[in-house]
């Protein structure tokens, strides 16, 4: 899972930083009377900033193309699902949802085919987050009143998927859920 590699990456970087600081801290205790230290600790250190800039640049150019806005951008979705979020439920439907008389239906999606969710809200901001059968968050978008966010995804595993709300929407926020099936 992506989350696991993120956590490991983070823990490694955090450990390295800690080790550097601890090492620097103990170096200040050793008896090194010759060392007067730097006169002005703010002296230039161009190379350090350069390394930082280059590594951030590499990181950005690798990750930005993987942003959700560009994924499947030039494919045609084989199914479109309309989603209306409201306090405290999600309505999903293959037909347009009428804001005055909103109704949803149960949804079964094909696996390995591109699906587009057109997500909006009828009241406050909500989150539309899709969890797989192991309850891992696999993708999400926001449900914002007055706007439609289009989220594209290809489900590779059949099974039951859950939708949770990921934007505080009132007291019912933690129980606002929905499900759909992928076959």
């Amino acid at each position: 899972m992506q989350q696991d590699s993120i956590l490991h990456f983070f823990l490694i970087l955090a450990a390295i930083s800690t080790i550097v600081f601890v090492f620097v801290f103990f170096s200040s205790w050793q008896d090194d009377t010759n060392n007067e230290g730097v006169k002005n600790a703010l002296r230039k250190r161009f190379w350090f900033i350069l390394i930082l800039l280059v590594s951030l640049g590499i990181f950005a150019s690798v990750t930005i193309p993987k942003s959700p806005y560009f994924l499947f951008a030039d494919e045609v979705p084989s199914k479109i699902i309309h989603v209306s979020a409201m306090q405290y439920a999600f309505l999903l439907s293959e037909k347009n949802i009428d804001a005055k008389n909103p109704v949803g239906e149960s949804i079964i999606l094909p696996s390995n085919r591109l699906v587009e969710f057109r997500v909006t809200s009828l009241d406050v901001n909500h989150g539309f987050a899709i969890y797989n059968s192991e309850m891992q968050l696999i993708t999400q978008t926001q449900a914002m009143p007055g706007y439609v966010n289009s989220l594209r995804y290809k489900f590779d595993k059949p099974g039951k998927y859950q939708v949770l709300c990921l934007e505080l929407c009132g007291v019912g926020h933690p129980v606002m859920q929905s499900t759909f099936k992928v076959q």
């Binding site: 620097v24 170096s27 200040s28 230290g37 600790a41 900033i49 930082l52």
Partner: peptide, 15 residues
């Protein structure tokens, strides 16, 4: 790049 590195330099092997 600036603050953290400065702190490190200010401490590294300096009594």
């Amino acid at each position: 790049g600036v603050t953290v590195f400065t702190i490190i330099l200010a401490v590294y092997r300096v009594r």
